[in-house]
Design a protein around this nucleic acid. Structure first.
Lengths: 228, 228
DNA sequence: CCTATTTGCGTACAAATAACACAAAAATCG
DNA sequence: CGATTTTTGTGTTATTTGTACGCAAATAGG
């Protein structure tokens, strides 16, 4: 019998701010099945586009958002995960900066929204499961690769990074040791600016030097974890 | 226009022995395209089977082999990777023990063979690229998850494990420190047997206690790397 | 029985990590 | 305006962990 399987992509897009915590982008479905349910952005792959192109296109169409970081997460292909057809979904993992993050409000607010990862509503299909995988990936990856910076502004106070790790790994990390550790990695550089958001001493701003990171990585430096 | 994409699975299966090193299972293709080229075992997913079922079925059909460990690797979906149709391949990563490992000779020897990962022939499609990803995964994963044991006999002398890590990470690890480290993880247990293969003092046999490993993992013990 | 080979075990030293204290610069509040 | 609170910045020391070794035990082979 001829193969009758459809191929789609889904995206778990994370955003972050110190006030709101870690959030994930969801859309409200317009059509059956799961009409009006919250779901991950995504859709069928077109014949001539790559998987990554499909993801970026769908995110533009459904949420008007541009990703700062994108990688493949996992492919979900269990028969029956879509009640109508056999659909294989290649799930992706994306990150946006706080700047782009706000764009969601520009599109129809009923249809697109950010949800804190601790308060995710009931979702269509197996999307809850997919999000769980993505959160696991985020938690796992942030300790040995510098993807945390992709969730922050290009220039950020150190405390933002610190809080991100706190929220994600929920362990009390020592502020001072954490900073020493990150700085020792050698790819964070100080910008000659300060920022003040509340009371307290103004914070210096830092910037992730991606070029320097790749240089160090080339030289076989063993990145190994930021914090356990 | 209607979506016209096929879905297949491929498997990168690794085997290991101290004498042969790390090997990967390849088959010689019978049909076009790439007729008579070496390629990864795999094929189209059937309508009612899961991805993992498809992998195990194909491996049975093409190589008569049973996997000891199987996980998804990555999905390759670039248009043009198959010269005829658009085919998305969900690549998998498998491990077999030395015992099962020998089975390949039972099937048609012209069509199935093990190749040392340092001496891989020219391959069909983008299969070389897929193998590279799999090797990277193996190297990366072996330092923080106990998958190395899935490549050894259930009871093995310590030196086998040691050599596996040597070959894979090609650094000179200190025999004595390596053993201390592994034993400190707490899930390797001594069996009351010895084995002698060449000259020298007979080796005690060890066994990976998977149950104990999961117990320790539950208790939030931070597995973190065997050797860097 | 002497040598080469392989496995087993322990100990001293170096390096990385964790615990902890206090100073500086601002807002807030009386 | 001064005292208090809040936030950021930097250092020092104890503890834990990792690394570099030396040497003994048990076998095969000649």
């Amino acid at each position: 019998m001829k193969q009758d399987i459809k191929v789609s992509v889904d995206a778990v897009v994370f955003g972050y701010s110190p006030e709101e915590g870690i959030q994930v982008l969801l859309i409200k479905r317009k059509y059956e099945p799961f009409q009006k349910s919250w779901a991950l952005p995504g859709g069928l792959v077109l014949n001539e586009e790559s998987l990554e192109e499909a993801v970026r296109r769908e995110l533009q169409e459904e949420a008007g958002i541009d990703l700062n970081y994108l990688e493949q997460l996992y492919s979900f292909g269990q028969p029956g995960r879509d009640p109508r057809n056999r659909v294989i979904s290649i799930a992706h993992f994306g990150l946006v900066r706080p700047g782009d993050y706000q764009l969601s409000a520009q599109t129809d607010a009923e249809d697109v929204a950010w949800f804190n990862i601790k308060r995710i509503p009931r979702l269509a299909f197996d999307h809850k499961h997919i999000i769980d995988s993505a959160i696991k990936r985020l938690r796992g990856k942030i300790v040995y690769e510098p993807i945390g910076f992709e969730l922050l502004d290009k220039e950020f106070p150190f405390s933002d990074l610190e809080k991100l790790y706190q929220v994600l790994l929920d362990n009390d990390l020592d502020r001072r040791n954490f900073k020493k550790r990150i700085m020792a990695l050698g790819f964070l550089e100080e910008v000659n600016k300060t920022l003040q958001r509340k009371a307290g001493r103004p914070a210096k701003l830092y910037r992730f030097n991606k070029k320097k990171y790749f240089e160090l990585k080339e030289r076989g430096y063993h990145s190994d974890l930021f914090y356990s």
